[in-house]
Design a protein around this nucleic acid. Sequence first.
DNA 1: TCCCATAGTTCGGGAAATTGGAACTATTGA
DNA 2: TCAATAGTTCCAATTTCCCGAACTATGGGA
Lengths: 121, 121
Amino acid sequence: MRPLFHPPIEAVRLEAVLHALSDPVRVAIFADIAGADCARTCSAFASVNDRQIPKSSLSQHFKVLREAGLIRSERQGVEMHNTARCAEMEGRFPGLVAAIVKAHEVEAAGRTEGIEGLAAK
Amino acid sequence: MRPLFHPPIEAVRLEAVLHALSDPVRVAIFADIAGADCARTCSAFASVNDRQIPKSSLSQHFKVLREAGLIRSERQGVEMHNTARCAEMEGRFPGLVAAIVKAHEVEAAGRTEGIEGLAAK
DNA sequence: TCCCATAGTTCGGGAAATTGGAACTATTGA
DNA sequence: TCAATAGTTCCAATTTCCCGAACTATGGGA
């Protein structure tokens, strides 16, 4: 297994970041990792937004996030510890990650309201 | 020709916005429109980043930006006037569009430096 | 040491999205 | 009415995405 590739922060491309986060499963994963105070494993996301994600797909999703420069993945025994590279990203593209994570929360909140609104009928 | 569809601002999806702007041609187009003080036509972008864009592709790109909620397109005689929906987007996802446009500028500046650095050798 | 379980990666083929040339539509002006 | 201009739609070739199956790596036991 080739060692995981992490781009140096100055090589991070906006295009790759936006592409990585333009997938609903990946933003959800990233928002969770970015909001967590400790590293998260891949298998922690076997289900995202009440949907089962096959592990081959999960692996791909983590690869996309990693190669976009959004997360750092380190093997810790049998599992993988993933952390967000928020501080570095903030240096490269100020405000970007924060705005996206916030936007993701806005949308999630809107969805919950929708459900409540529906349930209230 | 069916009338152009513009999503109401509250229906705008983060996923669609990020996907729309994850293409180098589309961010460049959007950044230009967002920075312009008057409407821009599609044909103004026959070439983007020194690359020729066929008009069928351009038409698709504008459609993606429009359906993501990022721009408004209105026919004005024989041409199409495109304007950015920045204020509305700011209300829906505060700071998002501004951070992306800024990040795009950061990258463009980095590229220019690179060229200058190369030329200086 | 050998085997098993766990965590993730890689491979490969079918499905879906993107690209761009050619043909088409809409609007204006002569 | 005809020609010119500005975009759109169609479609086929290419590319990318998704996920099941097979594989690799690490850490325990027996």
